[in-house]
Simulated assay, not measured.
Amino acid sequence: MTIIVLSSLLIIGLVLLLAEVLFVPGTTVVGVFGLAVSLAGVVYAFLSFDAEVAWWITSIAVILNLVAIVYGFKSGLWNRFSLKSSMQGGAFDGRTDALQIGMPGKTISDLKPIGKASFGDVVYEVKSENGFIAVETDVTIIKIENNKILVK
């Protein structure tokens, strides 16, 4: 009966450790629980057998657990979970590089206080300095900051 309990503890600990490394990496709960069950198996071995047999069981359990961890890292499974690309672009991507303070334009929608205005042939979202500006009104850029265009 002690062999069955001991082997069950060691096998369950090894399976949980393998599950942590192969199937649910990064959670650490399953891996810590697997190591705790394996440690409980080793403690049970020292309580149930003499010291020489318990040390053999401990060394075999440690070797199997280390092999499981090394196999998990070398199997390449981690590559499926790793980030291989990065986001490009963002809020400051140079959309307003062609604009200058003092540049004239014309609203193509009402600015209440935000709307659309055309500068050259390009349409931009702009914000009025003093609230409402009607459509087809001539405007001038007074400030460009963080891709936000302020007009009057």
Rank of each mutant, 00 (worst) to 15 (best):
L6Q: 04
A36R: 05
L99F: 07
T137Y: 06
V151P: 03
F92K: 10
A68R: 04
L111W: 02
L111E: 01
I101R: 06
G72W: 09
K152T: 07
V123E: 15
S85Q: 13
G26A: 12
V24F: 15
S38Y: 03
V24P: 09
G34I: 03
V151F: 03
R95C: 06
N65T: 08
I60M: 11
Y44D: 04
N130M: 12
S7G: 01
T2E: 15
V67G: 07
V126F: 05
V43Q: 03
V62Y: 05
S48Q: 10
R95H: 08
P113L: 01
G13H: 00
I69W: 08
L99Q: 07
A117M: 08
L18Q: 02
Y44S: 07
N65F: 01
G94S: 07
I141W: 09
V70G: 09
G31T: 13
F119H: 12
V29K: 11
T107N: 02
G41A: 06
A117L: 08
I133T: 15
L99A: 07
K74G: 07
V126A: 12
S86I: 11
I144A: 13
K74H: 09
D50K: 10
N147K: 09
L9H: 00
L47G: 09
I114S: 12
V123S: 14
L14S: 03
F73H: 14
A117H: 05
F46E: 04
S48D: 10
S8P: 00
I60C: 10
S75T: 13
L17K: 01
R80L: 12
L64E: 02
A117W: 06
L9N: 00
I3F: 11
A134L: 11
I144L: 14
S8E: 02
S75C: 14
A45P: 06
S118G: 04
D121I: 10
G31W: 05
S8Q: 01
V67E: 01
V123Q: 13
